[in-house]
């Protein structure tokens, strides 16, 4: 419950950030098209897809309860999630919940495949359903912002020309994607995002940050190069990886404050 409340807090903050002019970069599994740039027009479809997915989830759990693990066909969970358009809608709008959905899917699948008692499977099912409804709520909120023109269009191209504080926002977003890819059981993709983010984004701001708080930069360097890659490589739980990322995001929030202050002191070129 605590995590659930924390995620809603993050959700509110994420949409505040989304009202900025920064373009949202996406690298969703699904196609980036009308369904993510006209959320309002697709809300009914998304609601139907979530309901359909949850009904199918329940059927899988019931089959497990009555006929056993093989008959349950737990692989259907991933197949069902891959085919719905809602998948890329939540992936492009609020990555932390997207990660929770993958975590939930694998939570149910693992419980079934390892033939856990039905009560344990139902617990995982409840967590997954909670994440799905939370995701639908996030997309509805995003649709309202998008309708008011406050949400940047989702692009498949890379974000350009960021100020230093905007770079921090982009780094935090990419760290959310690290958790999502890890939850999706794609650890190599997660590690690749970490390296790319460090090399192409963090290294660009660390110079300015060293003069403000060298210990903080050193701490984040260690997180990027040791703590997070180690967590991804050592088969940690998704929650453990998320904890590392949230710790880093807290440090990045402090870094953002310092960079905003430093930018005000910078002199003009000419």
């Amino acid at each position: 419950m605590k995590r659930f409340l924390k995620q809603f807090h993050h959700l509110a903050l994420a949409f505040v950030a989304a009202t900025s002019l920064m373009a949202v970069q996406a690298s969703a599994n699904g196609d980036i098209g009308d369904h993510v740039n006209d959320l309002q027009g697709h809300l009914k479809q998304y609601h139907q897809e979530v309901s359909w997915f949850i009904d199918n989830l329940d059927e899988i759990v019931v089959r497990y309860d009555t006929k056993g693990a093989t008959a349950a066909q737990s692989d259907k969970l991933m197949e069902n999630w891959e085919v719905v358009d809602f998948h890329s809608a939540i992936e492009t709008q609020y990555v932390p919940v997207y990660a929770s959905i993958w975590q939930g899917i694998f939570g149910v699948k693992q419980a079934i495949d390892s033939e856990q008692p039905i009560v344990k499977v139902r617990e995982q099912q409840a967590l997954l359903e909670q994440s799905l409804w939370q995701a639908l709520g996030a997309v509805k909120l995003a649709a309202q912002y998008q309708k008011k023109g406050l949400l940047a269009k989702v692009k498949t191209t890379e974000t350009d020309n960021l100020t230093q504080p905007e770079t921090i926002d982009e780094i935090k977003h990419r760290l959310d994607r690290v958790v999502a890819k890890y939850a999706e059981r794609l650890p190599e993709s997660a590690v690749s995002i970490v390296h790319d983010t460090y090399q192409h984004l963090f290294e660009g701001i660390e110079g300015a940050l060293i003069a403000q708080d060298a210990d903080l930069v050193e701490d984040l360097e260690k997180d990027f190069n040791v703590t997070l890659p180690k967590a991804l490589a050592s088969k940690s739980s998704v929650d453990d990886v998320r904890n590392v990322v949230e710790d880093m995001q807290g440090k990045l929030d402090n870094a953002r404050i310092l960079l905003v202050q430093a930018e005000k002191k910078q002199k003009d070129v000419f």
């Binding site: 890379e158 350009d160 020309n161 100020t163 230093q164 660009g204 110079g207 300015a208 070129v269």
Partner: peptide
């Protein structure tokens, strides 16, 4: 990509000083 933000500030200053210049920038590693 370089010294985050500062190269951009240089380019912006050059553009501001030369309003008849149409500077297009492609950024990347």
């Amino acid at each position: 990509r370089g010294e985050g933000g500062l190269y951009e500030k240089v380019l912006q200053a050059i553009s501001d000083r030369n309003p008849k210049l149409n500077l297009k920038i492609r950024r990347g590693p």
